[in-house]
Each structure stands twice: as structure tokens, then as C-alpha cells.
Design a protein around this nucleic acid. Sequence first.
DNA 1: CCGTACAATGTTTTT
DNA 2: CATTGTACGG
Length: 658
Amino acid sequence: MKELARIFRNSTDWYKRLKKELNPEQYFFVTHNSPAILGIAGPGSGKTRALTYRVAHLLYENVPPGRILLVTFTNKAAQEMKKRVKEILGYLPEGLWAGTFHSIGARVLRRHARLTGREANFSILDEDDRERMLKSILASLIPKPAAKEKNFFKKGAAGKILSLSRNSNSPLDFFIKENNPEMIDYIPLFQQLEVLYEEKKRLANAFDFDDLLIQWLRLLQENEHLKKYYQEKFAHILVDEYQDTNAVQDRLVLLLGEKSSICLVGDDAQSIYSFRCAEIGNILRFPNHKPSCTVIKLVHNYRSIPEILELANCSIAQNKNQFPKELYTTRPPGQKPQVFLARDNLEEAHFVADKIIELYNKGEELSQIAVLYRSSYLSQELEMALLKRAIPYLTFGGLKFLQRAHIKDIIAWLKIIENPRDELSWQRVALMHGGIGEATFQEIWTLLRPFPNPLEAAVQGKVSPRRGAKGWKTLTSTLRRLISEGNENVSRLIQVIMESPYKDYLLSKYPEDYLERSLGIERMAAYGARFGSLQEFLESLLLEETLIIDSVKEENPESDYLTLSTIHSAKGKEWKTVFLIGLNEGRFPSPSGLKNIDEERRLFYVAVTRAKDNLFLTCAEEDFRGWGSFIGGPSVFLKELPLHCYECSVQMNQDFFR
DNA sequence: CCGTACAATGTTTTT
DNA sequence: CATTGTACGG
């Protein structure tokens, strides 16, 4: 195959092909040979396409795949790009490093785990794990928390501060002084908390999400030879959605790319992750770091009809700190975006569902339609309306599959097998056995922890707690059966758990919806079948949850599904028809987002620019979602739009708009 | 010390 | 409304 590429190279066919398939800016972006390229690209301008072609181009130029680092926003995007590259070049780029910052961080850290005080099989902690760990530490620091302190440390406030300070790469004391001045008195406490948290994670052979970035960076900063190795290795670094990187990610890119060619794309108008410490400044400052940087603007929108683009442009123009971009489209005019004002959210749901039926009857595929919303709970009535009409749909974002108790149970069992030092998983599993509570678990753990392999010790009966002996016996015998299955067949492992007394526990705990839950576990087992090892499975589960939804699609490839998604999860995607629901005050902009209204507006911008041909904006005058009704009227994002931008399909009280 | 019955409480967005 | 905290009896 490579031979073929070489033969082609001698001809001008490749460049001819690129010229044919790309517009002049894209062509330049793909072929330009420079140590630094920055693509500022509007929505629908084919930036992902350009990035894909650039990867293909590099491979065509005989850059070894292993020397290319491609960072995308989701792992799925990385997979799609690889697939596209294969289609373009005719061979699979094996050895290409592609994925999210977090997944690549995990990969690097597993390689050099010893240097960070971990083993290669370290666990990855999600946010719940982090909170549980911090809570237990706090309990030991403040035995009887005073009422004041209690308020401060509720609902994971401490964990959030810790995480934010780490992601913005600023020391804890500095961060608190800047952002949480009311907590200044607690700085020593926070610092103590941080130290103990780090220690606890190390003992559990675990990293949290933030560690995957921070420890990766630290690894490079503290080990000169590794820094050199990776700087040499990655001759080309390409990053998508750069506007959503945080300080740590920015440093990583600049450090890794000191001697390589860096190619970034992004759009400051689509930055929607500041809650995760994303800084638009990273993309804007990039040319300062790399003076030789070439900036290319991709402003030709291929996606949307002019009417939709006009609405998007009018909306984003209200943001003050925005780099003006003249997005244009050459698509012929179509239908103006439709605004629908419903009396309440029930009417809104039925309007959307009926409209979808109407489109479907006209021959539109459900997979070409999406319903988007600001917050996941806004989809509830709609889901009921869809169920009533038997419209199949898939939801993205929101209520996490992974966060459901029974799924977490299974994961805890598996994590013990994979990483026997994972205290949190031991705890979770132990507590579901009768007679074992918090205190008994502590006793068990102090007995278990000294063993180099607590799992082995447990199943060999080297530990016998004074209390909860019966539950402990059940637990260890299940573990024994799990171990005998080995680490490769994930589906089988899950099956073994479901054949163990855990099944009875599940049944007794959830008599109402046991069936649904066990079905969820079955789906998880089916998803696990594609992985060759437990480690890969767990990592995929934690680092890329949407994949499990796709596995449903693969099971029924012929089926046609409607998409329901949060706006955040819809990033980078497009549909022929888009409904944006819940466009009323109190919902979107979200009350918690009011302090950063510009970002909420960018979110609105992202939402409307997902649509190619049809855009429906709906609003419920009275909204019963969540707790209690809420009368807010149309969202400011509707009210501020010039009237020429849309049509109001149902005549309603126009006073709302003034 | 465990488990249960009841009260309180709190909603963005994601790797 | 559904999860999480607290109070008490076994």
C-alpha cells in the first residue's frame, strides 16, 4: 500500500485531487508546510475535514503514523477521522496517536506509571469517586464539622475548587484568593486536604480525570529524557477545538511541540467549556508563542442555508468580546427558522413530536433530525411524547449511564479485579453485603491493605474480619469465581457477577425496575465483548461514554433513530433538521450561567449552527419542568433577535417580545 | 455497629 | 422527585 502511495507521489495526482476536493483556504491549510498553523474556522466550514486531509497528506508524504499526534474533542471523533483517512488513502494509518487529551494522557501514564508512583493498571476515578474520597478525608480532618464549615463543604464544593485550581494550573492558595475570597481562612485546610487526597490516590493506585492531564505534564517536566523522547517522537501535533483547551492542555501542546509542527483549529465563537477552565485566550495567544505561525481563516459555511446563518450571525454579534468573522454560504435560500411559542412545555413537547412525525411522513430520516436543549432535564416531557408516538430515539449527554447505581456496582467489581488496591471499589462492593457497614469495611481494609495484592489475600482466606463474616464469605467466593475467568473476556466476567448473589441483592434493592436495570447490565456486557482486556473496557467506559450508545446503533444498524442531545454533546455534529427546545427565561440561558451570558450565547450559536436546512426554536410560556412551574416568557436569545431572522409559526401574544 | 424510616435538600454543561 | 443525610431501634 505504501508503495502505491510512493508511485502516486511522483505524479501530481494527489495534489490535483486535493485541489479538486478542497477550497483554496482548505487546500492551503492542508498542504502548507510550517512549524505552526492556526485555523480559525467557523461552524460548518469543514475544519474537521481539513484536519483529516492534513493527516492524510502527512501520511502521504511518508510521515510515519507513530510520529503524528492527533488530539480531538472526543474519542469518537478520533475514530471517525481515522476511518476517513483510511478512505482517502486506501490504507489504515496504524500507530497514529489519536484521541482526547485525557485518553492520550492515560496512555502515556500507563507507559511510565512507575515514575508517578503508580502501577500500569491504575484505576481512573470519576467525579463521584473523587467526592467520596474527599469526603472521607474531610471527615478525618474535621471530626464534628461546625455548622459553618458544613455549609462550605457541601455538594462537592471542596472538590470543585481543588479541581478548578488544578485545571487552571494555579496554586491552591492563589486560586482561592482570586476566585473564592470567602474561603481564605480555609486555605490551610484545603492544602492539607490536597496533600491527603494525593496520598490516598497514590495508595489506591488511582488517578482522577485531572491527573491524566496534570501528571502527564509533570512527567514531561520532571523527566528530561521523556520530554526529549516525546518531543522527538511527535513531529506533527494536530489539535481540534482548541478554543476549549485549559491551561494544562495548552502547556502540554506547547511543551510537546517545542520542536515539532503544530497545527491547531478552533473557533472562539464556539467556546463553551469555560466551566472546565477552558480559556479562549489559549487559541488567541498561540501566534505569540509561535511567531512563525500562519493564521488561516475558514469562513465559507457549507452546512446551513443563508437564513439559518443569518440568525446565527445576528445572535453572536451581540457578544462584545468576539472576533468578527464574516461567515458566508453559497447555498441557495431555504425556509426561515421557525419560532414556536407554546402555552406550556407539554404543548411544546407535543408540537415537536408531531412535527417530527410530519417530517418523517414526508420521507425525512429520523437520523437526520435532532432535538437539542440546554440541560438534560429539559427533555423529559419530550421523551414521553416520543414514547407515545413510538418514535425511536437515542439520548446523548445528561443522565449518565455510568452514574446509575447498578452500573457502578458492576464497575466496582471489575475494578477490584483489575486494580486490587482500589479502595473505593472494595468499599462499594463490601457494603452491598449484609452485615458489612462502613466500620466493618474499615476493619477489613486495614487487614487487607498491607498485602501486596489484597485480592489474592482475600480469596485465599488470609483475612477474616471479626464482624460481617457471612457477607465476607459470600464476597470472597464471588471474587474467586471472577478471578478464575481471567482478565480477557469482559462479557463473561459480567455474566459471572450476574450469576452470583449480587443478582439477588439487585433484585431486593430494586424490585420495581430490576428488569430494566439488568437489561442495562446486559447491554454493558454486550458492549464489553468488543474489548480484549478489562483495562481497555474500563478505560473506554470512563473516558468515552457515548461509545456505548453507538453500540446500540451497531446492534440494529438498519434502525433509524432520532437524536436527543444536550448542546454540549452536539458539538461538531450536524443534522438536516434541528429543534432547539426550552428557549424560555429560567431555562436557557440557565440561571447558573447568567454570570457568563456571553458563553450562554455562544452555546445558542453552537446549537443553531448544527442545522443544515430546517431550524425550529421552541419556547414554553409556562414551564413545569423541574420543581414547580415557572413563568418566564421567551428567552432573551429570542427577544434580542431582529424580527427578520425568523417566522413565528403560531400567532401568540406578541407582547412577549417587547 | 447495621439497617431502616423519615427529613432535607438541591438542578447546567463533560473528560 | 430522587438522591443523600440524620435519628433511632434492633
